[in-house]
Design a protein around this nucleic acid. Structure first.
Lengths: 234, 234
DNA sequence: CGGGATGTTGATGGCAGTCAAGCTCGGTGG
DNA sequence: CCACCGAGCTTGACTGCCATCAACATCCCG
């Protein structure tokens, strides 16, 4: 038990996951029900419609939450990174499919026990509520993109988000980053096709707005102002 | 004070709004901070970016939550009906615009006092969390529509939702209802244009799937199976 | 090196947006 | 009572964006 608690204190996401809402001595409540487990890229954590058994914190890696039509069209409705919460408390079925994008380390809680812990720790429930509200705002912002923005705006906006979230500045002041998902996944995220995403990227490259150093996923932002103009032409 | 509590007990949405989570004798907490107010069609409750002062329950009427681009394109990201909760606890700014579709009666709480009440009534906070999760699921389902479905599927799916939510069956077994929003609002909801929505409706009418009794907003579903086939062609 | 996965580029077509005209209906006032 | 008006809706003609289909390039691992 002491070991479990210590493992939590040393956890990579101790201060960014839901656990951040709990004092060191409260952590026992979560640490005793949490189990760490590694999932490989490509695995499906749970299918839409499955019995809903698990909740979890992402410790490392990346996951996607997808909705899809019966005939196989797919829309990525959320991406999950370290510190994010996975799962649906209070639902008997998982409404969405959760897939693993890159090998991920999850801290898993059985749903029923997680719900009980939620009831016993108001601060935990409060933080979950705030995160859920944030996810809702995020989803609604993306509804605007999916319903009303054209391909250029979608791709440019996507690059700006990534630049802000995970970009690093080089010695010339240019921001560099890697797109963390494949072209196909990017297309599913933006509601476009692979080809359209690709064309928009080469278009931005041709305009001198970005560079694609290693071809593929790495991006260098050469002219942020131009990129912003593409993302929301006033 | 007693009057306020009695007013709550008599409230139209006593059993459907957040208040349903509270016992009669707890209601005082909300009834003392709630103020009823009527808003007229077309009014804007709060603009995106405004200081976020209010939370409320919808007692009657209908509201829309919209996101929009700087150049004026608009996407309706949520519709609110009696019993629904309006507003964003814990945010200093309202991220979205809330507009009044038809004259509405709201039970308004100052945000700070509502948040305090939330902390003092775990059951209330629990229900708000569950509703927020439901809204998130709803938003994600609509992201699939906006990103991946064509005009026919969007319109047919929209009609099916309305039929289930507010349709009444006539003596011939056909479901009737009125579309509660204008063509323009329907278009903003579905991520289409007015013309496209109109064309899809006449198309469904020509196919004998629906009838448009009074021209305009009233709908009669003649062939539900056909409508379902349009909504998700397998 | 070879082969499969991933990404790019090109040619073409269709769906939905745009622009414009006409229709319907309720309301208003002469 | 009817003519008029305007908002909301429909219909038509046309355009353009993005999806589709197909070929090719590139990367990555054995």
């Amino acid at each position: 038990m002491v070991d479990a608690r210590q493992r939590c204190l040393d956890c990579l996401v101790r201060d960014t996951a839901l656990c951040a809402s709990m004092a060191d001595d409260e952590l026992v409540a979560l640490s005793t029900i949490g189990r760490r487990r590694i999932f490989d890229s490509g695995q499906i954590l749970s299918w839409s419609g499955d019995a809903n058994m698990l909740c979890a914190n992402v410790v490392s890696g990346a996951l996607k939450v997808t909705a899809s039509t019966p005939d196989g069209r797919e829309q990525i409705v959320g991406l999950l990174f370290p510190g994010d919460f996975v799962g649906q408390p209070f639902a008997e079925e998982t409404p969405l499919t959760i897939g693993v994008l890159t090998q991920s380390d999850l801290c898993i809680f059985p749903r029923d026990r997680f719900e009980r812990t939620l009831g016993e720790h108001p601060k935990l429930e409060r933080v979950l509520l705030q995160r859920t509200i944030a996810s809702l705002n995020d989803a609604r912002e993306r509804m605007l993109t999916l319903g009303r923005r054209n391909a250029q705006e979608r791709v440019a906006g996507f690059l700006l988000e990534l630049a802000d979230r995970m970009g690093v500045r080089d010695d010339k002041g240019h921001v560099h980053f890697d797109i963390p998902i494949s072209r196909g996944e990017t297309a599913d995220f933006l509601g476009l096709t692979i080809e359209t995403v690709s064309r928009q990227l080469t278009r931005l490259k041709a305009a001198g707005t970005i560079a694609l150093p290693k071809a593929g996923r790495s991006i260098e932002v050469l002219d942020r102002a131009a990129l912003e103009a593409c993302a929301s032409p006033d």
